[in-house]
């Protein structure tokens, strides 16, 4: 499944300072759909190069990270259960506090 993943607010530092990743995520055999839960595991294994605790806590993202699926808060689409489709854009952004 072709997806565009974007990291911002400092999270890009965890994946070699690259903000936009065009990726191809294989779904498991016999399973058609890919959920956000699957994607998080995939990202943690394949893209996060350092300090994974700055990206995830337990099986979800750490507090202070907003997840957007096609420019929409994942809270509105079912969080970890959100089903992804071909060419979806998923953004992970750390909230900023500076000023």
């Amino acid at each position: 499944m072709q997806l565009t993943l974007e990291f911002g607010g400092g999270l890009e530092l965890l994946c070699e300072s690259k903000k936009i990743h065009k990726v191809n995520v294989e779904t498991q055999k016999g399973v058609e759909k890919l959920t956000m839960k699957d994607l998080l595991t995939w990202v943690r294994t394949n893209l996060i190069k350092e300090r994974p605790e700055m990206f995830m806590k337990g099986d979800t993202v750490r507090p202070g990270v907003l997840v957007l699926v096609n420019d929409c808060d994942w809270e509105l689409s079912g969080q970890l259960n959100t089903t992804l489709e071909e060419k979806d854009v998923v953004v992970f952004i750390s909230t900023l506090h500076g000023g």
Binding site: M54, P63, G64, S94
Partner: peptide, 9 residues
Amino acid sequence: FPTPPPSTA
């Protein structure tokens, strides 16, 4: 943001 981020973030 119901839970604050870790201070290191």
